[in-house]
């Protein structure tokens, strides 16, 4: 129970901090919208395959930029303070949940803007939205741990990209396939495999993060 209380407090604090400055949210929002617009200006109209891939690439970079900050922006003093009041598990779970919320919001906005600017036919909007939701959650669960690792290693932005790309590629492959199924309006039973594997990956990644973060935290 204590863990849940801690998670709730930390989550509340993250959201409050974000609400006050709105820095991350506005920054990423601007980033996504301007990238979508740049893509629109350079492509005008795209075949469905490119439309889908482009959307995920935009989201991927937005996610890296957003989540890389989650540990790097914390000052040393504040980290020390957390160390005393909360268990490491609570911290990583709170971060993952917060990032997942942020990413869900971001990708929802991105999806709306993207589909208004770029005309395209999506066969099964519900499944596509589900793919975007799963994508947002997967990105945040994978990147949160990587950003924790990268923040311990000299706060290096390049390192974050190097470490996270090979890890995120299997997720991206599956998500692109899932959302392509949604675009083609295939029967939903076709997509169960991808949804299952993505859920399994998320589950494994969160479990491994929970097991490993205490070691990373203890310094």
């Amino acid at each position: 129970m204590k863990l849940f209380a801690q998670i709730k407090h930390l989550l509340y604090k993250e959201i409050l901090l974000e609400w006050r400055s709105k820095y991350a949210f506005n920054g990423i929002l601007l980033y996504v919208v301007s990238t979508v617009f740049v893509c629109y200006l350079s492509f005008r109209s795209t075949p469905p395959l490119v439309w889908n891939a482009l959307f995920w690439i935009i989201l991927l970079f937005a996610a890296i930029n957003a989540i890389a900050k989650s540990f790097m922006q914390e000052s040393k003093g504040r980290l020390l303070y957390y160390y005393q009041i909360a268990s490491p598990q609570a911290i990583i779970i709170a971060k993952i949940i917060y990032n997942a919320l942020l990413m869900t919001l971001m990708s929802a906005v991105a999806l709306v803007v993207y589909s208004i600017v770029f005309q395209n036919n999506v066969g099964d909007w519900l499944l596509y939205a589900l793919a975007v939701l799963i994508g947002a959650i997967s990105f945040s669960s994978v990147f949160t741990m990587i950003s924790a690792i990268a923040s311990k290693a000299n706060n290096n932005g390049t390192l974050m990209a190097i470490l996270s790309f090979p890890v995120i590629i299997p997720v991206i492959i599956l998500i692109i396939k899932l959302s392509k199924n949604a675009m083609d309006g295939l029967d939903r039973s076709v997509s169960w495999d991808e949804i299952g594997v993505l859920t399994a990956i998320n589950f494994i990644v969160v479990t491994v993060s929970l097991l490993l973060f205490p070691y990373l935290w203890r310094d």
């Binding site: 090979p166 495999d193 399994a200 494994i204 491994v208 993060s209 490993l212």
Partner: peptide
């Protein structure tokens, strides 16, 4: 040593998915 060990353990399940699960789906 510590950070490398953590990344190694974190990456291993992903490698297993890459080599043994993904190719079976496509």
């Amino acid at each position: 040593a510590k950070i490398a060990a953590i990344y190694n353990i974190f990456a291993y399940p992903i490698m297993v998915v890459l080599l043994f699960v993904l190719p079976r789906l496509t």
